[in-house]
Design a protein around this nucleic acid. Sequence first.
DNA 1: CTTGACTCTCCCCCCGGAGGAGATCTTACT
DNA 2: AGTAAGATCTCCTCCGGGGGGAGAGTCAAG
Lengths: 269, 269
Amino acid sequence: MFKIGDFSKLSQVTIKALRLYDELNLLKPARIDPESGYRYYSAEQISRLNQILVLKNLGFTLEQAAVMLNGGIRTDQFREMLLARRKQLEENVRFEQERLLLVEARLRQIENEGGELMSQNEVVIKSVEPIRVYSLRDVIPTFSAVGGLFHRLYEDITAAGAKMAGPGIQIYHESEYKDHDIDVEAAFPVTGGSKLALHELPGIAKAACLIHNGSYEMLHASYALIGKWIEDNGYSICGNSREVYLKTDDQASDQSEYVTEIQIPVEKL
Amino acid sequence: MFKIGDFSKLSQVTIKALRLYDELNLLKPARIDPESGYRYYSAEQISRLNQILVLKNLGFTLEQAAVMLNGGIRTDQFREMLLARRKQLEENVRFEQERLLLVEARLRQIENEGGELMSQNEVVIKSVEPIRVYSLRDVIPTFSAVGGLFHRLYEDITAAGAKMAGPGIQIYHESEYKDHDIDVEAAFPVTGGSKLALHELPGIAKAACLIHNGSYEMLHASYALIGKWIEDNGYSICGNSREVYLKTDDQASDQSEYVTEIQIPVEKL
DNA sequence: CTTGACTCTCCCCCCGGAGGAGATCTTACT
DNA sequence: AGTAAGATCTCCTCCGGGGGGAGAGTCAAG
């Protein structure tokens, strides 16, 4: 019989851990002195402890280990848990490797381009929810004509007694870059106005998103940035890009205050 | 200005997370209504939020992100943190991959050898602490003579008025298997007996350990098991193996109750 | 018998939120 | 203007695998 300290030294498992395993019914001491509460372990229990350590090394939780070791498991169940474990581990490895690539990309960027540390505007990947909107789609001669499209949209909405329930969204229905005769859709989420024919804007599973601050004349710079990012990070564009007008003339006194989000659907190559 | 729910939808960050970032001084709302306590965010703050998300994706903690974004950091410091991060991530990947190999080895074992699920006695890798012992070393004709060695050890210790302070240990000072004229050391940690010439048994950084239950006549089977395990798991033997007599004739009424631990120093190939 | 080393239970902490309770606030509809 | 629904607030507990420490009780050796 060993006291917990001796047993801990023998097994290289901390006393804290042993007490926890006791509490979780993973490894009950062979005897507990009813008066002092001291735990006494027998030499045979090292086998059991080793089983626990093996399961822990495989990455199972202590709770799973308790279920397995307390007998409620068949070989085929164990096999299935191992398969699930393998799947999870493979995913973990992929995830960590991808994260590693991101870190290395940052390091390269610092080495090459000097100290930018964190730019004000960073590209992030996120999903975009589907949303019901009222929208108008048209082929417009030049970019500057998109204002008119939004104006017609606004008139339709107010005429129907509806209200805008979110920021304006613009979708480029072009697969390539064009600067004339552009197929463009302007949309607003609305509330009320049951007469309006709403239409569901599909969600985007993965979109590369970048916030653009300031006048629309500089939007192309942000597009260049996000395009470079997509290329550098091994994504490719797989859908129509959008602009979301988070802050525009109705809340900003100056064009320099405008805030626009660029969303580009992407997929991992 | 967006209420927290709208801002959450825009940014695809949960309300819970936004409130946490507020608490951690990562992202304070642009305005908090002093009467209702409602948080109001401005469109510009999405940039800041994206910075947070990027740092989180790189695997930094929120606390680190707070330090970085709140200005107390220079580029070279950021670079060092990235380097540390890379090192940690590389280690994580190695660790998870090794764990994955363990799981796959288990799966192969189940497929090949049918349902053993968990054997009673599992091999674990652990470290062994250095320990001060009194020991005798001799070349003995056959294995069975090791008993005599321990007997002499026992007599020396009691004669010196000392006591054994732990289980007996046997070290094989042979690099290959021999069944006659074996160079063997028998050792006991002791307390008291200042006249005894103690000697420090070195620690082992990595030892493959296996508990053997029962008579010593079956020890060879456990040696075969641990040898196979070492080979299967990509280790190689790099030192003298030991046996630790955790339960032997002084506490056991029958040889079938003996408990012995085999320790073999190994290194990863 | 004393003293120092061990052990006991109980509580808080880590990390990044998730889930929920109960109260208050805003907003849309009548 | 009232009311009901939905949003939001703070505060609490929980997850995993223990680590660290307080305060009290126990064991073993000289």
